[in-house]
Design a protein around this nucleic acid. Sequence first.
DNA 1: CAAAAAGTATACTGGAGCAGTAAACAAATA
DNA 2: TATTTGTTTACTGCTCCAGTATACTTTTTG
Lengths: 134, 134
Amino acid sequence: MNINQATDYGFRAVLFLAQQSQSEVVEAQIIAQSQVVPMRFLLKIMPSLIKAGIVRSQRGIGGGYALARDPRDISLLDILEAIEGPIYLNRCLIDEDLCTKQGPPDCKVHLALADIQERLNNDFSGYSIADLMG
Amino acid sequence: MNINQATDYGFRAVLFLAQQSQSEVVEAQIIAQSQVVPMRFLLKIMPSLIKAGIVRSQRGIGGGYALARDPRDISLLDILEAIEGPIYLNRCLIDEDLCTKQGPPDCKVHLALADIQERLNNDFSGYSIADLMG
DNA sequence: CAAAAAGTATACTGGAGCAGTAAACAAATA
DNA sequence: TATTTGTTTACTGCTCCAGTATACTTTTTG
């Protein structure tokens, strides 16, 4: 029951970009060194953030990464989902056929887990990158 | 980001025991068949629930399992922790030395994750087995 | 006391995901 | 055109997951 390391690195990388002067691209190496993230590993994570529209990139000399939108519009859930996909507390919440009780309303466990999962999603989406910049 | 299958089976097994007549032991095979849990797998899970004081067992002919305490005093968190250990959203919440920022108050990511983790724990402990019996 | 019926403990297995590394590739700039 | 940057794909060692197998202990019953 945890986030994976890539997601943690993603949080820190995006927060770091948010703290740079607006729309200035920062080299991967600068991000990696300042956040103590293995450079190669960071490079593998960034494309997921780009596809999600959270970060933009620039290639070639003087290239790097910058935020693609306002830090107030980037939640921790956005980053988490970009990197490790949506939260599913239990496989029966992905595919109801996997529920031995054929899902709600009979399966009370299913209902409880669905509720907890929704709260968890709300908790992650309740934090924006801007909230962490103070 | 999910509970493991053993924990899900644990939820269902304990709920099933709670629905039996009080303090009557039920064979593992009955539990396994009714909850569609592989018998051998269930047998491996049960000792964790016993060590946590949630379930008691009886060996020999006519043996089986029964609840060890009131369903109102068994939360989903109790079962989850018995089977897969405590929830740690991130490794930096286990050992602050693993936080690249040496933990709070400097590391805002750390603080946010600690808050979300606490809410998640509360959400799981907010459901008792009795709540699921209705 | 012996046999059978339960649960207990330990170890194994195939598969998947995690964390990180490596190498070839593509684009942008000087 | 050479260099610098990011992109893509594949690989590796490791751990955990889900489930299975085997040998063992306890308890009851005949």
